[in-house]
Design a protein around this nucleic acid. Structure first.
Lengths: 227, 227
DNA sequence: CGCGATTTGGGAAACGATTCACAAGCGCGT
DNA sequence: ACGCGCTTGTGAATCGTTTCCCAAATCGCG
């Protein structure tokens, strides 16, 4: 990525490290939960514990957004929540298209966490004629042939790919061609995209294999100790 | 994690960095695909391109497993595949329990990538009486009351949590109590576990929020350029 | 058999992220 | 008004990861 970090005096947003961005989402969730418990302020120590990180790291993370804490007191829950949401760009609503309405696609279509966080499912799209025009979770499944039109009409900015691996690159290319620049990919392939497009990959099998590795390591170590 | 890296002269396994382990799964997938194309050797350059990484990084990653390449030639696909699988601990079959058979749980139960990579779905478990003893993907859904017995009987080593957020910590505690040390968590909560237990988290909402952040950044930059 | 083309393995530098440690700021009690 | 205890924000140190780069190993060819 040829990214220009810190474009000078832009509206308050400094260059936020990738690792920090990934954690902001967690902080936001924890803060929302705290807010419902009528907490008005929270210390870095509390918030860090709830988010499963070190308090120094949390403070450093938050410091990238600006100085929203009060020394001796902590952070105001409401202010901080809003500030993180703003940084993550959640103040504008984003339209999401789900492409590939198989098992997983249907499950995601019904996932409540979408709407509750400012993401609107704008369309369900599939290539299987048998599936097209059926209804899933109260939404019509539309034909992939109309992909380009749907993306334009619904102002889709994020696409979620749950197609079979075979189809993923193809669909991806078409998405990129019509200007989609953010893709969440569940298909087990490495997508090739131009540099200005962001792809995040969720790979269930890979997660299990990573756990498997650590299991083996633990087993080895147990054997070692027993020696 | 209080982990002892590099336990001396153990059977060939050096300390493999976490970042490397995470990529091995990808290499393995690409290699499997290559193997089906009857490729017999592959260079770091080819493999790296297919895996979407830099070739130097790939070589360094592989060098942690030992020296399985041939200078001037490349890597033997079969050998390397096997060696990665061995490192990831995929030579032993692992029994996986899925807990929480809602939308997502059902989708995962039907996910083919499980079986094809040496993971056996040993049990589907749910707390909802209406769901218990129904059949999903040809497997009976069992009662969470029997969790402890099922884990023991089926030799479950990895648990996949797709329960509602509310229930996750509870179930997690019970799993840990009966000796499960690897958990893949889809519930949007930070699980508290003892140090010897590995938890990996998949958070759909977080992924979208990260994409959202980059979208905003791109929008800002576009505005900047247009200035 | 020796040479050039190729490709790995790994030391070392560059980079990025995390943790440490503490000065500076704030509120409260007196 | 002042001092004490608490908590933030951040420079500096540390740690882990990635990239650079080249010597060493191997193959094919003349």
């Amino acid at each position: 990525m040829t990214v220009q970090r810190d474009a000078g005096a832009n509206g308050g947003a400094r260059a936020v490290p990738d690792a920090t961005v990934a954690r902001l989402a967690t902080y936001l969730r924890v803060l929302t939960a705290l807010g419902e418990d009528a907490a008005t302020t929270v210390s870095s120590e509390e918030l860090a514990t709830a988010a499963g990180v070190n308090s120094a790291m949390l403070r450093k993370d938050l410091s990238f957004l600006g100085s929203y804490g009060i020394r001796g007191v902590g952070y105001d829950v409401a202010t901080l929540t809003e500030e993180i949401a703003r940084t993550l760009g959640l103040t504008v609503h984003r339209n999401v298209a789900l492409i590939g309405i198989g098992n997983l696609g249907q499950a995601l279509a019904g996932y409540a966490g979408f709407a509750s966080r400012g993401f609107r499912i704008a369309a369900l799209i599939d290539a299987d004629p048998a599936r097209v025009s059926t209804t899933v979770q109260g939404m019509a499944v539309r034909d992939i042939a109309e992909l380009e039109r749907i993306v334009a009409d619904e102002h889709v900015t994020i696409a979620v790919l749950t197609t079979p691996a075979m189809a993923a690159q193809d669909v991806c290319d078409r998405l990129v061609a019509v200007g989609v620049t953010s893709i969440l990919n569940f298909a087990p392939v490495v997508l090739g995209v131009p540099g200005h497009v962001d792809v995040r990959k969720v790979d269930l099998a890979a997660e299990l294999q990573i756990l498997s590795f650590h299991e083996s390591r633990k087993a080895l170590q147990a054997a070692e100790v027993a020696r």
